[in-house]
Amino acid sequence: MTSLGSRMKLLEEAVNDLAPSPKHAGVSPERAIDADKARRPGNPMEHEPAPVANAHWLEPDQQPAVPGLLIDPDRKLTATFGTQHPPRGLSGMLRRAAYRVPDYRVRRWAMLILADRIEGLEATLARSVKQPATWLAIAGGVMLLVQLRRRA
C-alpha cells in the first residue's frame, strides 16, 4: 500500500502527463501572470466570510413596500427590490397565479412565459387602439361589410 504522499506524487505526475505537447507549453511570464492561484480573487471555498468593504450595517434598511409587488412563496420582502411595472391586465392575473407556485415547479415558469407573451399582445393592442390608422381601417372594414350586405 502506498502512502498518501507517494500517491499524491503519482497523481501529480499523471497530471503533468496530461500537459500538451512542448510546442504549446511555452508560456511567457506575462501570459501566465495569474497562473498562481493566490492572484485569483474568486475561490469561495477559500474565502473567509466577511462583509463587503464599505458595508456599514449588519441588517440593511428596508425599502418601503409598494402595491402590486409579487413575492416568491419561499421568499419574504427583501431589503431592496424593483418597483416598476406592477402586473396588470390578463397577463397580470396569470403572473399573480404563477407567483403562488414555488420556482422549482415547471408550471411556475411556463405560466410566466405565457404571461409575457400575453402582455406583448396586450401592449400591441393598446398601441393599436391609439393609432388613427387602426380606427380608419376598422371604419373602412365596417363600410365595406355594409356595402357587401346591401349588394347581397
Binding site: 474568486g42 469561495p44 474565502h47 466570510p49 463587503v52 440593511p60 409587488l69 409579487l70 413575492i71 416568491d72 419561499d74 421568499r75 419574504k76 420582502l77 427583501t78 431589503a79 431592496t80 427590490f81 407567483y99 414555488p102 420556482d103 422549482y104
Partner: peptide, 15 residues
C-alpha cells in the same frame, strides 16, 4: 462569502 450574485437581500421574486 464573496458570492454577491446570490445576494439574499435584493431579490424577492425568486430563489
Amino acid at each position: 462569502r464573496g458570492l454577491t450574485s446570490a445576494c439574499d437581500n435584493t431579490n424577492p421574486c425568486s430563489t
